[in-house]
Amino acid sequence: MNRPMDDLPERLIESDATTFERRVLGAALRKQPSSAASARMAKALGVTVAAVGTATAASTLAADVAATKATAAVATTSLWPWVSAGVIGLVVAGAVVGTRSGRQTREPHSVPPAVTAPLPPLSPTVAEPTGPVAEAPRAVAPTQRSRAVTTTGDLRDQVAFIDSARTAMSAGSSRRALETLRRYLDRYPVGSFRPEAIALEVEALMKLGREAEARALAQRFVAEHRGSLLARRVADVAGLTAP
């Protein structure tokens, strides 16, 4: 994570912490619920827990550089199946209700975690979104918010954009995917799926051979999402050093 836009100093772990201080702070960041607990919570909420297996996956402040590099080293080099699996899977799925799991259903602590569900078939009902085409260079982060809240209708439209881009990507049309993603990013400068869209954009640019553009975008993305699973995957796709 970058230095926040406020008047506080840079975070210790990112600045002048001693080795021992980093060790202590890193240990604090490694505290996480068990994999089984994460799976239970996700199940109760009707969502799918991401395949997370490292100490830093859920942390926005990566403390253990070695662990991060090790994770990045085994990351896949393709983004879109990972980005789209949850989006499409949930769009085509039937109603899932958030029921809570009681302790009596608790699995033994050593049970392996649930992982991402298989990629379901594409939804035939996802319509190609329409919107103004804009090719002007953009900043990764929006400079201002265009609205205070996101409506459900907006989210449906956003999902349609992302699905459309993924469909284009899977069909080998990176250019069409790129156009779709840029329409999305222009229409929703603070959209809920902006990180996923930019991640896909990086991959599309790489596939189009526009590597310098892709790497520049990836560097800004990684700087803004340092420590996130998506940032590591973007770095991997763009051939950057792991964040």
């Binding site: 996700a42 009707g46 799918t48 949850g86 949930l90 449906r156």
Partner: peptide, 11 residues
């Protein structure tokens, strides 16, 4: 679509 966002936030 709510679940999509909820899943992203959860993870």
């Amino acid at each position: 679509v709510d679940r999509v966002r909820l899943e992203r936030i959860f993870n």
